[in-house]
Each structure stands twice: as structure tokens, then as C-alpha cells.
Design a protein around this nucleic acid. Structure first.
Lengths: 228, 228
DNA sequence: CCATATATTAATGGATACATTAATGTGTTT
DNA sequence: AAACACATTAATGTATCCATTAATATATGG
């Protein structure tokens, strides 16, 4: 279990935020597997905090649907099933179709510039190798999808998008801990689709942006679950 | 401020749940207006609880997007703007299109029976008069929409549906505290559309169920905001 | 040996005292 | 009178102690 130095600095400002950032990263980085309980006392030891901020974080994560809860028993990672994965991705592909279409309507020039910059960075690190590189690659991808959600200018879509994105990534981690979006030839195909989507947004083509995004999310799902 | 007797019984079982149910009802019944802060100390007095369960409820409601929060300042009802209302309803009509379509695919016979029963009850109380009758009418409507979300068998869609439904109802309450879904002739038009939707689900017509539901939600929005 | 009842325990649920801070009020200086 | 510094206060943020309980282990009777 390793912490970036920044985190210790943040800790001084607001323990609740620190706790939230820490725990959600532990989850997204796959430190727990489905069914595992996140014991308050355990997290107290790990994060060196009192129970109070940790309990609030757990309450939050349950409300956000990242964790399930049994009364008087605790919070745990929800079980991962193919059906549930199908459900997350179905929700996500439809939500992201809406965010992309809405982004095509509302994007400012600076927004499009931002998206192109992300895609550029993504191309540069097309072959992530180390664990850190993979995490960095993941964060770029996250920024792209959640960035478009933000550009949609609809905080409800943004919220649902963020949730289904994170939840689906839990599946990506669980079913394919090596996932980096690489095709069999070693070439990353994320950037290609991301460029097409960005272009459609730049052209203010709502329909096309939405459909491309939906296809993009679906292709992620299919790469994961339909093994040949 | 009046409590049903049941609530006092519930209080004995789990204060956190009691607190949640109570506060969300205070919100849905319009005891606060946009911008109002929900002070912990105030709620402590009102609900006769300690701060602990109340703080957890507030954390939850912020996570669910019902409240906004300013650090070290408190939780407050998000400001209501026409643009925001448009955003909620846009999200909601698209989510509910999905839940209805998905319900048409997954509904068991007992589910359809349940929906018809709800519509029956709704027809019976077509002209709610007192405050209590209006609340009861609201609950039936809630059960119909969230019931379909449950029948969709997709907990992610269900979660987003529940959220956007409640959030949109906050607008209904705020902009039209008398709203009961009644048309100008005094006839409720909710049941009519609800019947059509239920029929489409019964016929396993996913496309039709989805489109009818989307239209239904949109008509609610338009009745609220496009005054003639 | 099995089933049932009882004790233990290890976790969450709840109450409260204390710390911190953003907002506000008050007074002093120019 | 305006502007700044300081004190007050009223709220949230945090730590911790005690209560409750679900699960497990243990004991007891058939």
C-alpha cells in the first residue's frame, strides 16, 4: 500500500476529503475484490485517521453505489457478475451517448482544444508499461470521458456518467487487471476512437458524436467480455 | 410539522434510516426553498436526535445530489433555475425511456399486475383534495415510475431514475406547490398515459414503451414550464 | 454425536465533548 | 465616513467513549 506524497499534504486540510480520495483510489486500483468488507477499524489503521471521516466516506460511497451495505455488518464491494457488468455498461453507453451529443451542442473552442490535448498525450503514451504508466494512462482516459460529461453542461448527466464510468472500470480491473485498451497488435485503439469523437464534437454533429461514443463504450465492453 | 405515528416506531429501530426518511420528506414536502441551509442543530431540535445520524443523512443526501455543500458552511437546497430544471428533465426523460424499454423486456406477469393495480388506485383518487390526499397521490405516481425502474432489472438505471425523479419533483413542488397532474378540466391525465405505458410493457413492445414514457415525462415538464 | 441454548466478541450504531473556522460584529485609526 | 484589525459566535469538523447487535464459539442436554 503506497501513498503519493501529495496525499499527506492534503490530509492536513480536510480529513474527510483525504479519506474519500484515499479509499476510492484503493477501490479503483483493485485493492479489494468483490465481497470484501471495508472494515472501519482496518481503514483507521491504514489511513491513520479516526473513525469519523472514514465512516462519512463509507456512507458516501454506499450512497454513490460503489459499495453495498449490510446493517450492523459493514460495507463491502458489490459482487461482480456478468449480468451486472452488462447492466453497468448498458447504462454507461446510453448515458455517454447523451453526454457526447450534449457536448457537441455546448462545447466552447477551449473545450475542444482541451480534448485534443488529452488525445495527444494519450498517443504519446500509447504503450504503457509499468504500473504507474498504466495508472497515468487510465487517468487520461478518465479525463477524456468525464471531460466530455462536464462539457455537456448538464450536472445530472455528468453525475450519472461519472458513476457508471467508475463502476465499469471496477469491472475492467477485476476481469482484466492488465487492461490498457491495447489491441492484439499492441497498438492502442483508444486514441483513434477518441479522435473521431472529438472531431464530431468539433463539427457540432450531435447525432454522430453520440453514436460514436456509444459504439466506443460498447467496444470496450466487448473487448472485455467476448473473448475469441 | 407533523409526524405519522409509524415514524416514531421506526425511530426505535434505526435512527439513521429514520433521519433519512424524515429529512427527505421535509425536502419533498417543500419545507425548504432553494438556497436554504439545513442546519444540523436545527434538525437535531426538529427530529430529536443527536447529530450523528443527521450528519450521515446529510452526507448521503449530498452524495445523492439532493443537496449541495459548502465546506465548513453547511448543506443547502441547490438553487432552482429554469436551465437546471431543463437539465433534470432531459436526463430523466432519457433515463426513463431506458427503464421503460428495459421493463418491457424483463417484466414478469406479477409485475404487470402490480402496475395495473397502481393505475387503478390512481384512477380512484383522481381528484386529490386535502394535503394528505395529494401526498398519497404523489406516492402512487412515485411507485409507478420507480416500480418500472425496478422491473427494468438494472440497478444502475434504477438508481439514476430514482435520483432524477426525486430531483425533478423538487422542481414540481417548488414551481407548482399545487401540482397534482390535473389538467384544466379537473381530470387527471396521468392515469391515461400510465395505462398506455403499462399496455406497451405488457405487449413487450420495448420501443413503444420507451417512447411513451419519454413523452409522458416531457409532458410533465411542459405542463410545468410552458404556461399559456 | 447432534441440536439447541448461552456466552463471547468484534464489528457497527449513536452520543457527546472538544477543535476549528468562516462569517459577522465591533471598535479604532486615519 | 471608510477601512482595517480584532473579538465574538455559531456553525461544521473531529475524536472518542459507550451501546447495541450479528456472528461465532462454547457449553449443555438429549
Amino acid at each position: 500500500m503506497c501513498f503519493h506524497n501529495q496525499w499527506w499534504d492534503m490530509k492536513k486540510q480536510n480529513l474527510e476529503e483525504f479519506s474519500y480520495e484515499s479509499i476510492i483510489r484503493l477501490i479503483l486500483e483493485g485493492h479489494f475484490k468483490p465481497g470484501d468488507f471495508l472494515l472501519e477499524t482496518e481503514l483507521v489503521d491504514t489511513l491513520q485517521l479516526s473513525r469519523t471521516p472514514i465512516r462519512h466516506t463509507l456512507t458516501k460511497l454506499v450512497a454513490e453505489g460503489f459499495l453495498d451495505k449490510k446493517k450492523k455488518k459493514g460495507c463491502y464491494i458489490p459482487s461482480a457478475t456478468p449480468q451486472d457488468a452488462k447492466n453497468v455498461f448498458f447504462a454507461r453507453e446510453n448515458i455517454e451517448r447523451l453526454t457526447a451529443a450534449s457536448a457537441a451542442r455546448h462545447a466552447a473552442d477551449s473545450d475542444i482544444e482541451y480534448l485534443y490535448k488529452l488525445v495527444e498525450k494519450e498517443k504519446e503514451m500509447a504503450n504503457p508499461d509499468t504500473r504507474d504508466e498504466k495508472m497515468a494512462y487510465f487517468r487520461i482516459n478518465e479525463n477524456f470521458h468525464l471531460g466530455i460529461a462536464k462539457i455537456s453542461r448538464n450536472k445530472y448527466l455528468e453525475q450519472y456518467c461519472r458513476h457508471s464510468f467508475w463502476r465499469s472500470h471496477a469491472y475492467i480491473l477485476f476481469f482484466d487487471s492488465d487492461y490498457t485498451g491495447l489491441a492484439s497488435n499492441g497498438q492502442s485503439l483508444g486514441p483513434g476512437q477518441h479522435i473521431e469523437i472529438t472531431k464530431a464534437i468539433e463539427d457540432r454533429n450531435e447525432e454522430k458524436a453520440g453514436n460514436l461514443m456509444k459504439q466506443h463504450v460498447r467496444s470496450t465492453f466487448e473487448k472485455l467480455f467476448i473473448r475469441v
